[in-house]
Computed example of a mutant assay.
Amino acid sequence: MSSPYSKELLVAQLAVQRASLLTRRVFLDSAKGTVSKSDASPVTIGDFGAQALIIAALRHNFPSDEIVAEEEGSKLREDAALADRIWELVKSTKLDDEKAETEVLGGAVKNKEHMIDLIDSGNSKGGRAGRIWAIDPIDGTKGFLRGGQYAVCLALMVDGDVKVGVLGCPNLPVDDAAPLSADAGAGSDEGRGVIFSAVLGQGATSRPLTSAGLAGGKSIAMKPVTELSAASFCESVEAGHSNQGDAAKIAEKLGITRPSVRMDSQAKYGSIARGAGDIYLRLPTSKTYQEKIWDHAAGDLIVREAGGQVTDVLGRRLDFGHGRTLAENKGVIAAPKAVHGQVLKVVQEVPGV
Results as ranks from 00 to 15, higher is better:
62 F>S: 02
343 V>G: 04
308 G>P: 07
233 F>E: 01
297 A>C: 10
36 S>M: 12
256 I>R: 03
16 V>C: 05
12 A>W: 02
38 S>G: 14
220 I>E: 13
216 G>Y: 12
264 D>F: 15
346 V>H: 00
193 G>S: 02
134 A>C: 09
174 V>E: 14
50 A>D: 15
179 P>D: 13
151 A>K: 03
163 K>L: 09
231 A>F: 11
53 L>K: 04
350 V>C: 07
84 D>C: 12
120 D>S: 14
155 A>L: 08
267 A>K: 07
341 G>A: 14
251 A>L: 09
130 G>N: 04
155 A>G: 06
231 A>S: 08
305 E>S: 09
336 P>L: 11
308 G>K: 00
41 S>N: 13
57 A>C: 11
311 T>M: 01
72 E>P: 05
161 D>G: 07
267 A>L: 12
70 E>K: 09
224 P>D: 11
225 V>G: 04
108 A>S: 15
331 G>Y: 00
274 R>F: 13
66 E>N: 10
337 K>F: 06
243 N>P: 11
285 T>F: 03
154 L>N: 02
14 L>W: 03
168 G>M: 02
166 V>L: 06
7 K>W: 07
224 P>S: 05
45 I>S: 05
317 R>N: 13
197 S>G: 12
112 K>C: 15
262 R>H: 00
143 G>Y: 01
72 E>L: 10
30 S>H: 15
304 R>P: 11
310 V>A: 02
130 G>P: 09
124 S>W: 04
245 G>M: 08
77 R>N: 14
48 F>T: 03
15 A>F: 02
63 P>K: 04
261 V>H: 00
147 G>D: 11
262 R>I: 04
349 E>I: 08
321 G>M: 07
350 V>P: 09
191 G>H: 07
73 G>E: 14
178 A>T: 09
327 A>M: 10
156 L>S: 11
87 W>K: 02
304 R>G: 11
220 I>C: 05
346 V>C: 07
217 G>Q: 04
251 A>F: 03
7 K>C: 12
196 F>R: 03
74 S>T: 13
269 Y>P: 06
124 S>P: 03
187 G>Y: 00
120 D>E: 12
273 A>Y: 06
294 W>A: 06
275 G>S: 10
79 D>E: 09
96 D>Y: 15
95 L>S: 01
66 E>W: 01
181 S>H: 13
253 K>R: 15
230 A>Q: 13
137 P>C: 07
21 L>I: 13
288 T>I: 14
270 G>H: 12
46 G>Q: 07
39 D>H: 13
34 T>H: 12
210 T>M: 11
247 A>N: 05
299 G>V: 07
